[in-house]
Design a protein around this nucleic acid. Sequence first.
DNA 1: CTTGTGCCCTGCCAGC
DNA 2: TGCTGGCAGGGCACAA
Length: 281
Amino acid sequence: MPELPEVETIARRLQSVLPGRQISAVAVFREKSFEGESRQLVGMAIIGVSRRAKLLSIELSNGMFVVVHLKMTGQMIYVDGATRLGGGHPTQEFVTELPAKATRIQMSFTDGSALFFNDQRVFGWWKLLNAAAREQEIGKYAPDVIDEAVTLKYLVEKFAKRSAAIKLVIMDQAVVSGVGNIYACDGLFEAQIDPIRSANSLTRKEISRLLTALRLVIHQGIELGGATIQHYRTADGLSGKYQDVRRVYAKEGEDCPSCGHPITRIKQAGRSTFWCENCQH
DNA sequence: CTTGTGCCCTGCCAGC
DNA sequence: TGCTGGCAGGGCACAA
C-alpha cells in the first residue's frame, strides 16, 4: 500500500504526537507481525519518529528503534486518550472501535492513548532493533528518489546497466527508494514515457524528465497526505487526497487527462500498469 | 550480476 | 444466493 508519500505523511503525524509518551503495554495479536521481544518496550519513552525509504523508525529512550514496514495494507493509527475514553471528538468513528479485526499490534501509552498497527494481509512488520541493526535494515535501500543524492548522473549510470522495463526499474528499491505502483505509473505518465521500454533505452533527456516527474508526483503526494485507493489511512485514520489528482493509476478505460484517449492497463511482473498509449512513448 | 516467477496473507468484488 | 478466480500502494527467495 504505502509508498514514500504515504509513509512520510504517517511519520510526520506520529512525530507530532508520539515524542514524550511512555509505553505502558504492547499487545501483539499476530506473532508474525512483530520481530523481537515486545516486553522490552514497556517503560520506554518515544524520542522521535522518522522515515527512510518506505520504512518508519520509532526511536526509543533506551537507544533502540521500532522499525516498521507497512507493505501493502499496513496502517498506523494513533488514538489519543480522550478519544479512547469516549470524551473526545474522533476524526473518524472507527478509531473508537480499535483494536479491530486486522489489528496486529497495539502499543499503549501511560496517558491512555494508543498506537494501532492494522494490516489486513499480514505482510507488514515491526522489528525491535538496536541502532546498528536499524542502520543495516535501512542500508538495504537505495537513496530516496527525492533525496539530492539521486542525481541525473546517478540514474543514467543505474539505467545503463538495466535492460528491464523502466517501470520495474524505478520501482526497484535498490535503484531508488520510495516509488511504488501508483507513483511509478503517474510519474511515467507525467514524463510521457512508455512503461515497457527498457531502462537502458532512455535518453539522458528522458531520464531527466522522468526524475523531475517522479519528484513532482511524490511531492504532490506528500502535500496531499498520500493516496487512498483502498487501505491507506493517515495516522488520524483519514483518507489521503492524492487519489483525487492522480493521472492514470487505477483509471483503466477512463479518459487520459491529457489527450482523452482511454487509459490502458497492462501487466508487468505480475502487477498492473496504467498508462496512455497515445501520450507515452 | 541480471531477469522472471512464485509466494507470503486476507478479503473484496465481478462474473458466472 | 452461492462459488471462483482475479486482484490489491511490497518485497523476498528462488531458478535460470
